[in-house]
Amino acid sequence: MRFAEPWYLLLFIPFALAFWLARRRAAWRDPELGYSSLAALPPTSGIRARAARLLPRLRPLAVGLVLLAAARPQAGREIREVVSEGIDIVLAIDLSGSMRSEDFRPRNRLYVARQVAKEFVRGRVQDRIGLVAFAGRSELISPLTLDYDGLCALIDGLDFGQLPDGTAVGAAIAQSAERLNRAPGKSKVLILLTDGINNAGAVDPVTAAKLAKAVGVRIYAIGAGTQGAAPFPVDDPILGRHYVWVASEVDEATLKEVARETGGRYFRATSAELLSQVYHEIGALEPSRVEMRSYTQWAEMGPRVLALGGALLALELLLGFTVLNRYP
């Protein structure tokens, strides 16, 4: 609440002084009729009597409201709006068979990759994020969206067997870049996670990276997997599940070249903890650009206050000349 013309509130000083003098004058005035005692008069405790005692207070109240209306009281309502310049991001996640390796605790590489990707998505604000899965070929799982809950559900649904086995890194980069090229955002990012060497698809990763650079896409490449050999589960119908040690074959040279070509960075994640740190670091490199603006919208309350004062004054005059008319 504020007053647009607060100086009019100074009129309450002479008004209060006049009201006080009128009260004192009424107290000093000689009575119309002299009585030695009021005991013989009937009691004045009815509704009409009580209303008659309240009637003289309506006019000062009405005048006070009129003076208040002159000061133009205004009620404010704060309005907030989010002004954002979101980033367009595509997450490309490897679903090849080597992602079954269980060097990332508590389970295999794909399981940890899903959890970390969901954590990354939930930490973004006003960024449009899409999802690409790849193995022997690349497939768009989700277009760019702001529905983070729905996207996290799709990430949870990523599993082995959805695509033919293999590692089509170049195809994943090309498809992600094609999707980002359609996006209206100024900043476009691809986060590529793989644990292998490109061995499928019609385009090699470096050529795809050059295409991505041409449409303004930055690539952050992540090589997942421990250095050396990793335990790989094998389910045998007779012997049951047992583990064999399989060498981790991350093509770091190619992934570094892909990142360098597009102005991004390459990261090596050899554990679940390091993978989580990598996503956090990428999030810090590509912060969401969100600005909160707030302003107050003021509404004039003066006409309402003036109408209330006028209504009270009209009520006082109406009652004073009718049911509460006093004699003499």
Score class of each variant (00 low, 15 high):
Arg265Asp: 05
Ala69His: 04
Gly223Leu: 01
Ser37Thr: 13
Lys186Tyr: 07
Gly264His: 07
Gly283His: 07
Gln175Arg: 10
Arg100Gln: 14
Gln115Glu: 15
Leu67Cys: 02
Val250Ser: 07
Thr262Ile: 00
Val66Arg: 00
Asp204Phe: 08
Val112Phe: 07
Ala168Tyr: 08
Lys118Thr: 04
Arg114Trp: 03
Asp204Thr: 09
Ser84Lys: 02
Ala269Leu: 09
Leu324Gly: 06
Leu255Gly: 09
Gly264Ala: 10
Gly46Ala: 11
Leu54Phe: 09
Asp159Ala: 15
Gly216His: 13
Gly309His: 03
Val215Ser: 15
His280Arg: 15
Leu61Trp: 10
Arg100Asn: 06
Ala221Val: 07
Arg109Asp: 07
Ser187Ala: 13
Leu21Ala: 15
Leu315Ser: 02
Ile173Cys: 09
Val278Glu: 04
Ala221His: 06
Thr145Met: 06
Val66Cys: 13
Tyr266Val: 08
Ile191Asn: 02
Ser36Glu: 15
Ala174Tyr: 08
Glu81Val: 12
Lys188Ala: 00
Leu308Gly: 01
Ile87Glu: 02
Ala269Lys: 11
Gly302Leu: 01
Thr167Gly: 09
Thr254Trp: 01
Asn108Ser: 04
Leu131Ser: 03
Gly46Trp: 00
Leu110Val: 10
Ser294Tyr: 04
Ser271Asn: 13
Ile13Phe: 02
Val278Pro: 02
Ala52His: 09
Leu58Tyr: 07
Ser176Cys: 03
Ile173His: 07
Leu324Met: 04
Ala71Pro: 10
Tyr266Ser: 07
Glu273Thr: 14
Asp195Trp: 09
Gln115Tyr: 09
Ala4Phe: 14
Arg77Met: 09
Ser45Met: 03
Glu81Asn: 02
Leu41His: 12
Pro6Cys: 12
Ala39Asp: 12
Lys256Asn: 01
Glu316Gly: 01
Ala214Cys: 01
Ala183Leu: 11
Leu65Cys: 00
Gly161Val: 10
Thr322Asp: 03
Leu54Asn: 00
Ala18Asp: 02
Val217Trp: 05
Gly130Thr: 02
Tyr243Phe: 15
Ile79Phe: 05
Ala153Phe: 02
Ile238Ser: 05
Pro14Asn: 12
Leu17Glu: 00
Leu68Tyr: 01
Gly161Gln: 10
Glu78Asn: 03
Tyr35Gly: 11
Ile13Met: 03
Glu257Ile: 00
Gly223Arg: 04
Gly264Trp: 05
Glu261Asp: 07
Arg72Phe: 05
Tyr35His: 14
Glu261Tyr: 08
Leu144Ala: 12
Ser98His: 05
Arg179Leu: 14
Gln227Ser: 14
Gly161Arg: 10
Leu211Gln: 11
Val278His: 01
Gln115Leu: 14
Tyr266Phe: 15
Gly136His: 07
Arg260Met: 03
Thr207Tyr: 02
Glu178Gly: 14
Leu95Asp: 03
Phe15Tyr: 14
Ala153Pro: 00
Ala18Thr: 10
Arg50Leu: 14
Thr207His: 06
Phe134Glu: 07
Leu33Trp: 08
Ile238Pro: 00
Ala269Phe: 06
